[in-house]
């Protein structure tokens, strides 16, 4: 065998050779110090790149908050909504309603969030209809947040009394907070490192999904912890005492 080229050496490093090819290259390396040296050089370069990328990653800002608009369309109109939402004018039409004008971001982005949040609802329907129909239900908005150092905190600030809050443990790596049934001004989402603040707004229901595998998770209302994760269960604080609430906890703001 002639000297091994970079292609063979990289493929060996990355496990991309067939068994026969790998055997041939390894056999050659045993008897060729020059090629063995080249392999070492490539390994060092690879390690340098990996370490450098970790330095870069450490300086990377977190992705911007993904404000998601959920458009709850009927099943038969699903595909029609999708096709029309591809155009900005269609997005404005479909989202016409009290909450739409208050939402941040471009129309395309709002549509993307809507589609992402409830993909099954939007894409499980029949063939596209000829026209777009406005969804009947009110819009919702949501945000995701990744835990940092094994912790996630959701802070509800100045939310209307009477808002129902449901907290669940879910099998996902990131938390999801969704304001459902916005009936007035939309709440503001502020995302920090391992935490999300939901501020104000007039919503009927707030849904909070917390990662089951996170070490620590809390939901607080105006600075007071109402729900915290304790192992595999949630503990709900009510009237000055905590109760085991299982994988789901519900409370009403102001109670």
């Amino acid at each position: 065998m002639e000297h091994a080229g970079d292609g063979q050496l990289l493929a060996l490093m990355d496990g991309q050779l067939s068994a026969a090819e790998e055997a041939a290259v390894r056999s050659h390396l045993r008897s060729c110090p020059a090629c063995a040296q080249e392999l070492d050089a490539l390994r060092e370069a690879s390690a340098l790149l990996s370490a450098s990328l970790r330095v870069l990653d450490a300086a990377a800002p977190a992705p911007k908050p993904v404000v998601r608009l959920v458009v709850r369309a009927g099943g038969a109109r699903v595909a029609a909504v999708r096709r029309t939402l591809l155009r900005a004018a269609g997005i404005v039409l479909v989202l016409a309603g009290g909450g739409a004008a208050a939402l941040p971001g471009s129309p395309v982005r709002e549509w993307a969030r809507a589609a992402w949040e409830r993909g099954k609802a939007l894409f499980g329907g029949a063939e596209p209809a000829a026209t777009v129909q406005t969804p009947a239900a009110a819009a919702s908005i949501g945000i995701d947040a990744a835990p940092v150092a094994g912790r996630i905190r959701v802070s509800l600030v100045a939310m209307r009394a009477g808002t129902q809050v449901r907290v669940r443990l879910v099998d996902r790596p990131v938390a999801w907070i969704e304001a459902e049934q916005i009936v007035g001004a939309a709440p503001q989402f502020v995302r920090g490192s391992g935490r999300v603040e939901v501020v104000g707004g007039v919503v009927r229901r707030l849904r909070i999904d917390l990662p089951r595998d996170v070490a620590r998770a809390e939901v607080e209302v105006d600075g007071r912890v109402r729900v915290r994760k304790d192992g595999e269960v949630l503990r709900l604080a009510t009237a000055g005492r905590e109760e085991d609430s299982g994988p789901q906890a519900e409370f009403v703001i102001g109670d």
């Binding site: 080229g5 970079d6 292609g7 063979q8 991309q16 490539l42 060092e44 340098l48």
Partner: peptide
């Protein structure tokens, strides 16, 4: 596909050299 390894090797060496 057969060129990926060669391109990677060249790029790795280039990165290390420049860095």
């Amino acid at each position: 596909p057969g060129s990926v390894g060669t391109l990677l090797g060249r790029a790795l060496r280039r990165f290390a050299q420049v860095y």
